[in-house]
Amino acid sequence: MSKIKRRPAANAAGENKRPLLVSIYYYRGFYMMFLPVLVFAVIFHYLPMFGIRLAFYSYKGIKDPLFIGLANFEKMINMPGFWSAFGNTITLSVTKLLLNTFMGVVLSLMLNELRSLIFKKFSQTVVYLPHFMSWVVTASVFTLILSPTSAGLVNSILMKLGIVNDGIYFLGNQNWWRPIFYIINIWKDTGWGTIIFMATLSGISPELYEAASMDGAGRWNQMRYITLPGLSNTIITVLILNLAKVMNLFESVFVLQNDAVVQKADVLQTYIYTQTFNSGALPDYGYTTAVGLTSSLVGCFLVLICNKASHKVRGRGIV
């Protein structure tokens, strides 16, 4: 009877004790695949971090920077435009995040209830498509739809119904700009956000619904006691991850704002852009770097706070 040769356990354990250079050479194929990602991260994420030092310098034009300590931060605190942009950033970002998450959950629940697989796939495709439109195209489309003249679809309908006599300039009215901004963001991003929630719903065991149905639970009670608790961890995770981007609001605001609504629409990133390129004076890159650094620190603080709350609510966080 032939003996089966087994690999000695000592050799298998010995692989973990290879010298570092030998181990890298042994797995060289994996490191080669990882190398482009590493180079990209170093060039576009880590090297620019050295520019943070400009926040402590006065740097105008191409002359040598002058070290001024915390003077840029003192200037920032005393600038009314900064505080206005800061408040707008928090308000717009947090409201947009909550509305998009809520609508994403609602939409995913509605799609999950569809019985026709063909219609379900078609509906998913339709609600996902707006995500692939650039914000420039989206702004152009809604500018036409919301045009204050009779050529605008919304104003045309309102005039025909006799609700208004003159067209409303929705994107140029301080009272209307924010609601319109939220609606456009919901239309564009909600469908894409449902992908995560739909994946979670597909992972909920059908046996739970069957057991609940046998106990006499209707669709609403099944949704209340099975579906929503099953989604809770995913909802919290999505909120925490998106909080990291709260202070980075720029493109969607930049393409929709104008001088008439700048008081309600100016956010930190557009404030930095204006101070750098449209201030009418020689840009102070040190000051705008200080504003950007403050924005990043606030975003990091919000994520840590939300992660701490996650520890309290569900016993664990994601950081």
Rank of each mutant, 00 (worst) to 15 (best):
G193V: 04
P206Y: 10
F197H: 08
G218F: 06
A211G: 06
I196F: 15
A199W: 12
I226K: 06
G230F: 07
T237V: 14
L249S: 05
T227C: 12
G193I: 06
K188F: 04
D259P: 03
Q257Y: 09
I195C: 11
Y225I: 14
S213T: 12
Y225G: 01
W220C: 07
Q257S: 08
K245L: 13
S252Y: 01
T237Y: 09
D215K: 02
T237S: 09
M214P: 03
T234M: 10
I240F: 02
W220S: 14
G193E: 00
G218M: 01
S202I: 08
L243I: 08
N221P: 02
V267H: 08
N233G: 06
V253G: 00
K188E: 00
G203P: 10
P206W: 11
V262S: 04
R219H: 11
S213K: 14
D266R: 04
I195E: 09
G230R: 03
V255Q: 00
T237K: 11
K264N: 13
A199R: 11
A199H: 13
S202N: 11
K264Q: 12
V262D: 04
N258L: 07
M214Y: 04
W187C: 02
D266V: 01
S252I: 13
S252R: 03
I235R: 09
K264W: 09
E207V: 15
Y209T: 04
W192P: 02
M247R: 09
T190I: 01
K264H: 14
G230V: 10
G216N: 09
I240L: 10
I195G: 03
I186H: 02
F197S: 12
W192S: 01
I236D: 04
L208P: 09
M223N: 14
V255N: 02
Y209H: 13
P206E: 13
I184G: 01
I235S: 05
I236W: 01
T237A: 14
I226R: 08
G193W: 00
Q222P: 10
Y209Q: 09
W187T: 03
E251T: 12
